[in-house]
Design a protein around this nucleic acid. Sequence first.
DNA 1: CTTGGTTCCTGCGTGC
DNA 2: TGCACGCAGGAACCAA
Length: 291
Amino acid sequence: MPELPEVETIRLGLEKYLIGCTIEGIDVRLPKIFHGNTKDIECAKVKQVRRFGKALVLDLDNDFSIAAHIKLTGQFIYQGPNSPNPPNTPNNLIGGELPNKWTHVIFHLDKGATLFYNDIRQFGWIRIMPTREVENLPFINELGPEPIRLANARSGQAVLTLGLFKKILQVKKTKIKPLLMDQKIIGGVGNIYANDALLLAKINPARPANSLSLAEQSKLYKAVMTVLKRGLKYGGATEINFVNALGESGRYQEHFLAYGRENQPCPLCGSEIKKIRLAGRGTYFCPICQK
DNA sequence: CTTGGTTCCTGCGTGC
DNA sequence: TGCACGCAGGAACCAA
């Protein structure tokens, strides 16, 4: 499931290949996930690519933007003359011929390039809107501070400093894991990185946030940073069907600490990772390290 | 303020 | 081999 590192990985790719491209035409094959008027972006050129938490925004040179949230299974894949050969893996969910049955929007670019939007579960959305209104989108407007200051983040956007993190934890009695994943509290952290950060910090996912000691608060803050940076370094985690802007898989799934590792050895102590349900979400933890 | 349930959707694992 | 069934999950929304 794409989180901050995965979406940032996509953003980096889109930035590399899309800036300067002109959108010549748009095929919307699944109208329900596409909001706004295609006419507003025809003939416009991509100026910059921003990310707000797990949301992506393509800003165009006509003061319109394409805002998108890929949710669980969305993919933005670029194919063009200046990109490497597209991957053609055996798994038809990743790579292979495009468009495919999950391709819902096709952006035809100049020089014969194409941007495909695929989404198996159709939870994601794309919205065309004036650039100045992007930050009024509820998801972006109400997004909490982001752990990592990355290029092209919202200008003036709050950064999650250690001090701010501590303040948040001290006033919240919510269980720490769902708190980490609450986009209105902290921007960009989802299930994978919440699980891994909590194991790295040796904190039980069900602990009330305000029960953490000062030392634990610092440790968790560092752990969140560490796992997010690690995720980015490995090009994201391909858990379901995440791919980058060229259709390539990530490799962070080879480095999961807790997430998805039920009955496998804890990387810290060797005992078995257990899976429980917490606030409706699959939760992986080490009963020995995270008491 | 907070938590919990439901909804969207489809691929996949399970059991027979 | 094939079919029915139920589950997972980001975030909006509603209810208590």
